[in-house]
C-alpha cells in the first residue's frame, strides 16, 4: 500500500464537490500514477474540470486529496496548472516570453531579484517548445496551438513534476493536437506526470498511458487500453449528447 502511494502523483479518496445545492462529484476515488500521461475523459458536465480544480485546491471539497505525497499547499511550486482557454484573457497586453516567465516566477518566488534568471530559463523553455522566435510577440497574436505551446513552456520553466491541463486541445486542429501530444509525451519521458482533461476519445488509447473515466464520480481508471472499453464508455457516456469521436 505504501509503495503504491509513493508511486502515485495524485491520490484522491471519497471526493465530494458541490456547487451550491448541485453535487458535481460524489465519492470519487482514484490514484494517478507518477510519470504517466493520463487522460481524464467523460461527457460535458461530468466533473472533469472540477476534479482538476479540486486537486489544485481551488474549490471547497470533502474527502482526501494528496498531491505528490502531501497536501497541495505543500507542493504548489511543483505543480503546473493550465486552465481552459476561455479562462484566459488572450487580449491582455503580455508577450510570449512574459507568459513563460510566470512559470519561473512560480518556482523562484513572486518577489525578489530573480528577473534575469527567470528570463533566461523562460527563453530556454520557449526554445524547447519551438517558440523562441516568437518570444517577443503578444500572446494574443499566436495561433491556438502556439498558445498552448507557450503554456507548456511555462510548465517547463516552472520545472513542474506534475502538469495538469484542462482541455488543452479545444479549438485546435488535428495536426496541431498531434504535435502538442508529442510535446506532452516528451514531457512525460523526462519524468513529469501529465494529466489532461480530454475530449477526443480516438486518441486516448494510443497516446495516453492511463485513463480516468468520469461521470459524477470515477467510473473506472487504469491503463488506457484496458479502461477504454465499449462497456465502460457506455457506462460513462450513456445517452450523454455530443461525445463526438468515441470509437470504442
Amino acid at each position: 500500500m505504501t509503495d503504491d502511494h509513493e508511486r502515485l502523483a495524485i491520490s484522491i479518496d471519497a471526493l465530494d464537490v458541490a456547487y451550491g445545492p448541485r453535487t458535481v462529484l460524489q465519492g470519487a476515488t482514484v490514484g494517478i500514477r507518477a510519470g504517466a500521461m493520463t487522460a481524464i475523459v467523460g461527457p460535458n458536465g461530468a466533473g472533469k474540470s472540477t476534479l482538476l480544480r479540486a486537486v489544485m485546491g481551488m474549490l471547497p471539497f470533502s474527502g482526501s486529496v494528496r498531491v505528490l505525497g502531501g497536501p497541495i499547499d505543500a507542493c504548489r511550486k511543483r505543480v503546473a496548472y493550465v486552465p481552459q482557454r476561455a479562462a484566459v484573457d488572450w487580449d491582455f497586453p503580455i508577450t510570449v516570453r512574459q507568459v513563460a516567465e510566470m512559470g519561473a516566477h512560480a518556482r523562484l518566488g513572486w518577489f525578489g531579484f530573480t528577473g534575469r534568471r527567470a528570463r533566461r530559463e523562460s527563453l530556454e523553455a520557449l526554445a524547447d517548445v519551438g517558440l523562441a522566435d516568437l518570444a517577443a510577440r503578444p500572446i494574443g497574436e499566436l495561433s491556438g496551438g502556439q498558445q498552448q505551446r507557450a503554456f507548456v513552456a511555462r510548465a517547463l520553466a516552472q520545472r513542474a513534476d506534475l502538469v495538469l491541463l484542462d482541455e488543452p486541445f479545444a479549438s485546435i486542429d488535428a495536426t496541431t493536437e498531434r504535435d502538442l501530444l508529442d510535446l506532452l509525451a516528451k514531457l512525460r519521458d523526462r519524468g513529469t506526470t501529465v494529466v489532461v482533461v480530454h475530449h477526443d476519445l480516438s486518441t486516448v488509447r494510443d497516446r495516453f498511458d492511463d485513463a480516468v473515466l468520469v461521470r459524477g464520480t470515477v467510473i473506472a481508471h487504469g491503463a488506457a487500453r484496458k479502461v477504454m472499453t465499449a462497456e465502460l464508455l457506455a457506462r460513462t457516456y450513456g445517452d450523454a449528447p455530443g461525445h463526438g469521436t468515441a470509437s470504442a
Binding site: M56, M58, R76, K77, V79, A80, Y81, V82, P83, Q84, A87, V88, D89, F92, I94, Q98, V99, M102, H105, A106, W110, I139, R154, Q158
Partner: peptide, 16 residues
C-alpha cells in the same frame, strides 16, 4: 499582478 490579470486560474494555482 501580471499573472493574475492574464491567467487567474494559473495565478491562483501557483500561489500568486
Amino acid at each position: 499582478i501580471l499573472a493574475s490579470s492574464f491567467d487567474r486560474g494559473f495565478a491562483r494555482a501557483a500561489g500568486a
